[in-house]
Computed example of a mutant assay.
Amino acid sequence: MGKLIYDSEDHPIVLDDRALAHLKVVITTKLRRQEGFTLSWRHPDGQPPGRSTIWLHPSIPMQFIFDEPEPPELNARWIQDLMNSANTSGGIALVDEVIDGPE
């Protein structure tokens, strides 16, 4: 499980390394453009049930920490799905990865 440290190390956001790798691409793309937006996710197993939302802005410090030393192969469709949601008024909704099967 990876961690997204946002503004402070007091409350890291714990996410699967694979999901965090895909979010990193979308988040850094948006912040490089100086665009603020929200990120929402469901709390993982082992935490109280619910969901959280944070406001992401280029001026707030952020760190991505991965457990795995090698980055995963990225799924372009998942990145596009996340980017599409980032461009809405609701912000990024961390949706499950969709893997295209053989046609």
Rank of each mutant, 00 (worst) to 15 (best):
M62P: 01
R42H: 13
R51N: 14
E35R: 15
H57I: 01
W55F: 13
E35M: 09
Q34G: 02
I54T: 07
Q34M: 02
L31W: 12
L39F: 03
W55N: 14
Q47I: 00
I27P: 02
P49I: 00
P48D: 09
W41L: 03
Q34L: 02
P44H: 04
P44M: 01
H57P: 00
R32M: 03
I65G: 01
W55Y: 15
F64S: 01
S59Y: 11
Q63D: 11
F64L: 04
S59D: 11
S59C: 08
W55Q: 12
P49W: 02
G46V: 09
R32L: 06
T53Y: 03
R51K: 15
Q34T: 02
M62L: 13
D45C: 06
P58N: 13
E35T: 05
D45A: 12
G36Q: 15
P49Y: 03
I65K: 00
L31R: 15
G50W: 08
Q63S: 06
R33D: 02
P48V: 03
I27V: 13
I27C: 03
G46M: 04
D45E: 08
G36H: 07
W41N: 00
R32A: 14
P61Q: 11
R33I: 00
T28V: 13
W55V: 13
W55K: 12
T28A: 07
I60N: 10
E35A: 12
R32T: 06
G46Y: 06
Q47A: 10
S52C: 04
T38C: 06
K30V: 10
R32W: 05
F66G: 04
T29F: 04
T28Y: 13
I60E: 10
M62A: 12
I60L: 15
T28E: 15
S40C: 10
